[in-house]
Design a protein around this nucleic acid. Structure first.
Lengths: 338, 338
DNA sequence: CGGTGTTCTTTGATCGATCAAATAGGGCGG
DNA sequence: CCGCCCTATTTGATCGATCAAAGAACACCG
């Protein structure tokens, strides 16, 4: 590893000054075309690459996004974060950003990390993935004016439209509408929903998608719907036992739409392939079982996250033109039919 | 975000010079205890944190490890990388290192990334995860003297003991020995192996574990063993169809040990729970199905990777004392019994 | 008391880039 | 031909830390 060339080296080869080289890299339009070309040749000839740390020291921007890697590796949906990360890293790379990982055991530890990463100019924005109501991390970030975007809506009522809190989320309600309409169109009438107990924002949102579709498209009574609405506590290591209740619905439902692939797997183990089942997340499990599943468009989520972040980063909120709510974005999921 | 305090601020509060503050942070033992204490108080009082980019510019070390996020999100074992990453990020954090993600569509693109990240002083070492025989990335890194460690052995014969190529891997052979002995101890005699076609280093290694155990512990003939040795091409989206051949073994085996949880899922779908099945990787799928599975100790792998990297980083190879081969480390997996 | 180490601390230079302000080179109207 | 403006380029200072070497303080000895 011999010494890297610097702007000064490039400058002397091109017969210009340091600053002109810098201008070619950062504000090419102010450099005369002919000069620019000479500099670019010198850059190519020397294989010059700017020294990122030096630039960051001066500009006070790291162009790096911090993402916490969740400790939760249990649950079949674990690979979701993985896919999201991949989409994020890829798009970030294209936009000239890097993604730095960090871990933290709990919220105070994570806030400690925020401080370290921000003060050290390692990171200039964060993406939070597992947010919850009353999240102290969000308060800290807002208070310290550190840009951030969350993947996931804040389910507290007032927070949802807070313009300081940028978020991107997937429209789970719409996802379950798609799933439910799909099985209805295939001839089912009594479609059951297998989800989690009320109280989780995400779960309730998905349930609402099923319920509203059933109300609109079928003539089932309120009681009949209640009987088809199953809520189970999920335990990733129970071998699908939690989903057993689906087998007790009497008479058996024509189809089942689930709030997760993990629940879908449980239903599949309890019922075999007699009843059509639709999962949620389109994980490898759904693929392996040949189940239809609602796919979260993680690439679009990642794109949204970056749009919002770059918008905020540039001082103004919002990215794409013509979007009604430039601080928040709801991505429509897609049904993968198998 | 008001101006961060700098070493100079700390110095003036503590009544010492910049360099003394720097010494307190980097080489505390050369500072007199009394002075050190005063400086530490000033640091705490001002909430001073060193500016990482400034330090990196001067020291030419980023204390950051680059890891590529694999595009392959298919396959049930997808979450493996996720778990590895988490373990790596966590341990790296403790050792004062950061983990930077990058993506690349193919090998040339990845090598391009190497250049960018190294020249920009963003990263000073890499961890490679999906290596293959004749990997050009490895040649590049060795040629450019960039430290790296691979998770996974190079299966080429000569490469395996190359002292320039540090690697950590999991002893898959041992894993299948554990799995096979487990089902034998439970009373099985004719234990089948469900794996991939010969040619993949990892797959052959696992097969060898099964085969050698069967040869040592049972009186089955060579032909009988061949009949129990199944190799199938795996396609993550086939709904477990690839594994169907397990149902055709005649007479049916007493148990099946698999080269992956994904294959185990296929076997499970083909055979139901009549036959004990042992998977590999201990993914959420195995947990959900209640299957025993061989667990790769990813935390130990991550630890090994860091040991080797830090060793190489400090100029001498190797980490822990008393390890016979300081450039390579083989982690013993563990059988999770369910 | 001067010389000679030791130990601890300070000073000046530097890493590689960008910022801010100054300078050169035209073009053009008066 | 001068003055003015505009554009393209250069110069000096700076970001926040560490390196290398010089300086101060003190003890010990002949």
């Amino acid at each position: 590893m011999r010494r890297q060339p610097t702007v000064t080296d490039v400058a002397s080869v091109a017969g210009v000054s340091r600053q002109t080289v810098s201008n070619v890299l950062n504000t090419p339009h102010i450099v005369r075309a002919e000069t620019r070309e000479r500099v670019e040749q010198a850059i190519a000839q020397l294989h010059y690459r700017p020294h990122a740390s030096a630039r960051r020291l001066r500009t006070r921007q790291s162009e790096t996004i911090g993402v916490r890697l969740d400790p939760e590796t249990d649950g079949i949906s674990g690979s979701l974060l993985d896919r999201f990360l991949h989409a994020l890293a890829e798009r970030a790379g294209r936009a000239g950003f890097r993604v730095l990982l960090y871990t933290a055991a709990d919220e105070p530890a994570e806030i400690e990390q925020f401080g370290r990463l921000v003060d050290g100019a390692d990171v200039d924005a964060f993406v939070l993935t597992s947010t919850h109501h009353g999240d102290t991390r969000i308060d800290w970030l807002i208070e310290h004016e550190v840009p951030f975007v969350t993947f996931g809506r804040p389910w507290g009522v007032a927070d949802m439209t807070d313009p300081e809190h940028l978020w991107v989320d997937v429209d789970g309600r719409h996802g379950l509408t798609l799933a439910t309409e799909h099985v209805l169109a295939a001839g089912a009438r009594r479609v059951a929903f297998l989800g989690w107990p009320a109280g989780s924002g995400t779960g309730d949102d998905r349930r609402a998608g099923w319920r509203s579709t059933m109300e609109a498209r079928t003539d089932l009574s309120r009681d009949e719907l209640d009987a088809l609405d199953l809520a189970v506590e999920e335990d990733p290591s129970d071998g699908g036992v939690a989903a057993r209740p689906v087998a007790t619905i009497d008479p058996p439902p024509d189809a089942i739409v689930c709030a997760s692939d993990s629940l879908a797997l449980g239903a599949r183990l309890a019922l075999g392939d007699r009843v059509p089942i639709v999962g949620y997340d389109d994980t490898p499990v759904a693929r392996a079982l040949g189940l239809s599943s609602v796919e979260q468009r993680l690439d679009e989520v990642a794109e949204g996250v970056l749009d919002l972040l770059i918008g905020a980063h540039r001082g103004r909120a919002g990215g794409a033109e013509g979007v009604d709510d430039p601080q928040h974005r709801l991505v429509k999921p897609r049904l993968v039919v198998r």
